[in-house]
Design a protein around this nucleic acid. Structure first.
Length: 432
RNA sequence: GUGGGUGUAGUUCAGUGGUUAGAGCGCCAGAUUGUGGCUCUGGAAAUCGUGGGUUCAACUCCCACCACCCACCCCA
């Protein structure tokens, strides 16, 4: 128990962290190239925020939230998604009165859902997401999609598809829901139990029921896309033509409705094919009514969220190589106790000029120190022994070529830096 | 929340009722008294997931719980 992380959580150990850091760097780059700036919001929020924004009939709210009373008797919930907190911060920080659109991204944002863990589905996971407030044109939707698309392209993901759909605005959806309920009532007898409960509350969810019987029944159901009002239709057409112009491959999938209530008009998912079938790696859409719902002025918005663990899973599956940075540039070994201080000082000097350096801290045999140096991957190992000390020198060994050079201890740091630069230049040379 | 599978050294796995539970890799040490990767030799390391039960005897059979994997649900 003491040595076991709670169910559905995972440590990222130092041996793995470079993958996260590399992905985060790419995500930041893409977001910032499109003018998004980072926002950081608390891990927990007032429960009402999520009831209001996500919708109290959704599965997320009904059974997946980490909700508890704090010592001040406030109902608190750990973020089950990233948008609500960002929207709250947008309002509370008065960004709504600044020049719009306001473009923000969040990264390494912990998200909590109480559900049964599985590959690519944890109780705590981390999201990268972007949010664009106050931009109504379909180009904003396309803009958001391109950030995700470019990220995956650069990462080297193949078989990338964008699925898009429009679920209309509250006005045209109202008429659609009536028509859909009428249709479902005709087929009520054959629908599964879950779908019966969905019928009144949220009939659109029946459309993506996984039961084959329901799928059969629903085949000829009226589609939202056929009943969009003129404005929504125009918006969707505009998004499609923009994606075509940008040569982003998309398919229309009227079954994407997404699980959260706040979506309006555009909903989309980025999908990739894996051995085990389709994997959703990014999901998002437009939520023009969210800010209003939270008590702010009518402000349209569009964004996406992507799970970093899931991206990482994809990286493994596709065999995408993420270069592993070396832990140390230089390791300094110590042969006698008198060498300890000069070695330690040399490390400090090396760090001063920007080299990753460390020295022995266990006074073990030189052989063991070399073994350790080898494991750190340091291209240079420095030896300070009796002979060197006597002459005020240090010996610097290229771990690949095994060439050794002697430097005066006073100028060793600079010389070692030059030696390292030569080694790196040589390795680059052989690569091409 | 529902159903299926799994749980033995740090790790990957052998071991299905009978002495002191094994191996590869990893770790530590030596061969190599100032030098890593290869080789050889030795060593440490397991309350056999946890708790209960059946039995003369349980890692092995039964039950419960916990965790992991898979599927459903839902999603990222």
């Amino acid at each position: 128990m003491l040595t076991q992380a709670p169910k559905g959580t995972k440590d990222v150990l130092p041996t793995e962290i470079y993958k996260w850091q590399a992905l985060e760097k790419m995500m930041r780059t893409e977001a910032e190239l499109a003018g998004f700036r980072e926002v950081r919001t608390p891990v927990f929020e007032h429960t009402e925020l999520f009831l209001r924004s996500i919708g109290d009939t959704t599965d997320v709210v009904q059974k997946e939230m980490y909700t508890f009373k704090d010592k001040g008797d406030r109902s608190i919930t750990l973020k089950p998604e990233g948008t609500a907190g960002a929207a709250r911060a947008f309002l509370e920080g008065r960004l709504v009165s600044d020049a719009l659109p306001c473009k923000m991204y969040y990264i390494n944002n912990p998200i909590f859902r109480y559900e049964n863990p599985q590959a690519g589905r944890l109780r705590e996971h981390h999201q990268f997401g972007i949010e664009c407030y106050g931009a109504k044109d379909a180009s904003a939707d396309a803009d958001v999609i391109t950030v995700a698309y470019r990220f995956f392209k650069k990462l080297g993901v193949k078989n990338l598809t964008v699925k898009i759909n429009s679920i209309g605005c509250p006005e045209c959806r109202k008429a659609y829901l009536e028509t859909l309920r009428g249709f479902m009532h005709e087929h009520e007898g054959k629908l599964c139990e879950t779908c019966h409960t969905r019928l009144e509350r949220n009939p659109m969810r029946i459309l993506d029921c996984k039961s084959p019987i329901c799928q059969q029944e629903v085949k000829d159901a009226p589609a939202m896309l056929d009943m969009l009002c003129d404005e929504c239709k125009e918006h969707f057409e505009c998004l499609k033509s923009l994606l075509e112009e940008l040569e982003i491959p998309y398919v229309i999938d009227s079954r994407i409705v997404r699980g959260l209530d706040y979506y309006t008009r555009t909903v989309f998912e980025l999908i990739t094919q894996t051995e085990k079938g389709e994997l959703t790696i990014c999901g998002g859409g437009r939520y023009d009514k969210l800010v209003e719902e939270l008590g702010g002025p009518a402000t349209c918005a569009v964004g996406f969220g992507m799970g970093i663990e899931r991206v990482l899973m994809l990286v493994e599956q596709e065999g995408i190589e993420i270069p592993k940075p070396r832990t140390l540039d230089v390791y300094v070994t110590i042969q006698t106790p008198e060498a300890k201080l000069p070695a330690f000082k040399l490390c400090q000097q090396l760090r001063e000029i920007g080299l990753k350096a460390d020295c022995d801290h266990n006074s073990r045999s030189l052989k063991v120190q070399f073994k350790f140096a080898d494991k750190t991957g340091a291209p240079i190992t420095v030896v300070i022994g009796q002979d060197e000390l006597r002459n005020g020198l240090v010996k610097s060994r290229d771990m690949v070529s095994r060439d050794e050079e002697l430097f005066y201890i006073g100028e060793a740091a600079g010389k070692i830096a030059e030696q390292l630069a030569d080694i790196d230049a040589e390795q680059c040379g052989t690569d091409y």
